[in-house]
Amino acid sequence: MESSRFPCPFRWARSLGVAALLTSLPAIGATACTSADPASAPPTFPTGAERDTEVKHEACDMAAANAQRFDANGDGKPDMTRVPDAAGRELCRVLDLNFDGAIDVFVYYDPAGRERRRESDYDRDGRADEIVSSRDGAVFLKERETNFDDKLDTWDYYEGGRLVRRERDSDGDGLVDQWWAFNDPTDDRCALVATDRNVDGKPDPETVLDLCAEARAKQAATPPKPQAPAPRPSGAVPLPNAPAPMPPGGAPIAPQPGGASPR
């Protein structure tokens, strides 16, 4: 995929409240955004809201003569295959995680040995259901196939290791019709969600849903619990009628009449 221009209807959603988002959606949805640094921007898609939904497998030559094969459970079948280049640097790795003889995961590495791509097959049909792309060891994009039609339908974007944006093709027509903005850095279950009901390629303002609005309203309506007094540090203040302190290596010092000190 290219990294030039991409619609960004929720780029600023994390800093907007729901009311502001409702006001801003039409203008934002119609704007194409240009990244000043294409190399750091998520891969993009063709004009409009169309997506390339093909699940593409990157080659990993597990039959290479220098491939290293490991049989973890002793059944005579490789459960891990490492494929290095001529210099011995690992290019990719093939994993059978459940020892059923079928490949579950392909992992690919950059020249520094950091993971750059991972293809995972969760339903054991021999095709990837999720493709995770990383840069400098950090995830920036997850592409997923969630409805078993062998086409990508969900694109999750990450910044600094945190999920910040999701775009979905909920009906399998190759057009993005759902936008998610994860607007609470402390809870990745919270998001503003908008859909495109009129099929114009833009989120419809009246459809915006705040997934955590009810929980936040309840929290705001609940009075804070009174704070318990802090425990008194042990020995800070002697209690009334407490026994006289014991001097080192001697008997207790008896109090003297009139407050005089013993000699």
Rank of each mutant, 00 (worst) to 15 (best):
F6M: 15
P7E: 10
R14K: 11
A19Q: 11
A20K: 06
L22S: 11
T23H: 10
P26S: 03
I28T: 14
A32L: 15
T34A: 10
S35F: 10
A36L: 11
S40W: 03
P42K: 11
T44E: 04
R51C: 11
R51M: 15
D52K: 02
E54K: 04
E58R: 15
A72Q: 12
D75K: 00
G76K: 07
D79N: 08
P84R: 08
D85A: 05
F99S: 13
A112P: 01
R117L: 15
S120Y: 08
G126K: 00
I131P: 03
R135K: 11
R135T: 05
K142I: 13
E143F: 04
N147K: 11
D149R: 13
D150E: 14
G161W: 12
L163D: 12
L163G: 09
L163W: 09
G174K: 01
V176Y: 00
P185G: 02
P185S: 01
A191K: 04
L192S: 05
V193K: 09
D200K: 15
P203N: 01
E206P: 09
E206S: 14
V208L: 13
C212L: 02
A213C: 09
A215L: 08
A221I: 09
K225R: 13
P226V: 03
P226S: 13
P233N: 07
G235Y: 12
A236K: 06
P238I: 08
L239Y: 05
M246W: 05
M246H: 13
G259S: 11
